[in-house]
């Protein structure tokens, strides 16, 4: 009964969400929430399509997506870490800014290369990475001192600061990693899921789903992987749900699931044993 092709399709839908979610997990564990993930994904997608259209090399496109994510997260780090601007405001502003810039970059793409065919990337390597990353993250977070520092900053910033931890530096590094992963996931989306095409609204709110899957996975690496995989499953099943005649409800299922996960996470966090990091 197990259909391997369906499994692969679920995985290919889940990978972009997983990648962004891991980055966001590190960010939220260190006590900040980067709401700009969706924008960074779009920016990474359009940059990677442009670069791989010019160079004809998809690997280069993937790397440029990663670099774009790094650069975009600097736009978040400067206001939030240096100037103490409200993180929610900055995150959302980054989303809108990045959406616009992504479309602007795509409009160069149309002028440079009207129809360069782009070979789509094979997703084997990334799929493998996606299985390995949660293990690495788990080791990092629960078996090393760096992980303890990250979690300490997330739980109690003032205490960590008094204890001598470099709160701002660690947060900035986590934000850079998170941005890079979000850019990578955006370029993965454009280069494999959509066969090297970029269009307006390419992310379709999947960045928000990544943030939602961090909450659904309750800020644990393995939990996040499972949550991202289940959201990927729902995304894959969307056409079937639509065929069942559920109409607009089928398209909205992943978003409804995120709302449910918010409720569940709020319920769990009432017990003193499972405290989430203070992010907002």
């Amino acid at each position: 009964m197990v259909d391997l092709s369906l499994l692969l399709r679920v995985l290919s839908n889940a990978i972009p969400i997983m990648l962004s979610a891991y980055g966001e997990l590190l960010v939220e564990r260190s006590g900040r929430v980067n709401l700009g993930v969706d924008g960074i994904m779009a920016l990474g997608a359009s940059m990677s399509v442009l670069v791989s259209a010019i160079t004809g090399n998809t690997m280069l496109g993937l790397i440029s997506g990663l670099a774009t994510g790094l650069a975009a997260s600097i736009l978040y780090i400067i206001p939030v870490i240096v100037f103490r601007v409200d993180q929610v405001a900055t995150g959302l502003l980054l989303v809108f800014l990045a959406w616009g810039l992504a479309d602007l970059i795509a409009s160069i793409g149309y002028r440079v290369s009207p129809s360069i065919p782009i070979g789509s990337l094979q997703y084997n390597i990334l799929a493998l990475i996606t299985v390995i990353i949660p293990l690495i993250l788990w080791l990092l977070m629960y078996k090393t001192w760096i992980g303890v520092e990250i979690r300490a900053i997330g739980y109690n910033e003032i205490l960590a600061r008094e204890r001598g931890l470099r709160v701002d530096t660690i947060r900035a590094i986590m934000l850079l990693i998170g941005g890079a992963l979000a850019g990578l996931s955006g370029s993965y989306m454009a280069l494999t899921l959509y066969n090297g095409k970029y269009f307006t609204g390419i992310t379709g709110g999947w960045g928000w789903l990544a943030i939602g899957s961090v909450i659904l996975g309750y800020w644990h690496p393995v939990g996040v992987a499972v949550a991202a995989y289940s959201i990927g499953l729902i995304l894959t099943l969307r056409p079937y749900l639509e065929a069942m005649g559920l109409g607009p409800l089928s398209i909205s299922t992943p978003y409804i699931m995120v709302i449910l996960s918010l409720i569940i996470a709020a319920y769990i966090s009432r017990s003193p044993r499972f405290k989430p990091p203070r992010i907002l």
Partner: peptide, 12 residues
């Protein structure tokens, strides 16, 4: 339900 209003309103 204690759900964070930022994310839930975005999803809506």
């Amino acid at each position: 339900a204690g759900a964070n209003e930022i994310l839930s309103s975005l999803m809506l």
